[in-house]
């Protein structure tokens, strides 16, 4: 989501690398879509070119993994994989704490958390000029 005016620049910077004009353009568009997609998924923004650079470095760093031969190796989710997972009885053990749970919410009505209108996607990049202007 988020980019306000400041984020314009980082996309420009991120797209201007390598190749002929046309391949750079295609790659640039792909990349721009990728960054936008990530921001929508993550619901945080890159903020500036530095944020994009940070991701690039993180990917480069992660790419070292491909030096390791993992043929026939099962992925490991948990170090406790050989043990039975504890499942407690399906009984209600606590509850009646609506008041406590609502205490930390900024906006609520009666026993409900209040959200702004839903089902409105974040604005597309072109429409983002004014987006988030109210936020620092």
């Amino acid at each position: 989501s988020a980019p306000g005016g400041a984020s314009r620049g980082h996309r420009g910077a991120a797209t201007g690398t390598g190749g002929t004009a046309s391949t750079a353009n295609t790659a640039g568009t792909g990349r721009r879509h990728l960054l936008e997609h990530l921001e929508h998924l993550a619901l945080v923004d890159f903020r500036d070119a530095e944020g994009v650079e940070r991701l690039q470095k993180a990917i480069q760093f992660a790419d070292q993994l491909h030096e390791v031969n993992t043929d026939g190796v099962e992925p490991m989710d948990s170090v406790l994989e050989d043990r039975c997972l504890y499942l407690r009885e399906d009984d209600v053990t606590e509850g009646n704490c609506t008041k406590e749970l609502l205490e930390n919410a900024t906006e609520k009505v009666e026993e409900y958390f209040v959200a702004p209108p839903g089902n409105i996607p974040l604005p597309k990049l072109e429409e983002q000029e004014t987006f988030l202007q109210g936020s620092q």
Binding site: S1, L43, V44, D45, P117, I120, P121, L122, F131, Q136
Partner: peptide, 13 residues
């Protein structure tokens, strides 16, 4: 403006 924009702004801040 919307739930999503509130999420995004909250997380940005």
């Amino acid at each position: 403006d919307s739930t999503e924009s509130m999420y995004a702004a909250t997380r940005r801040e």
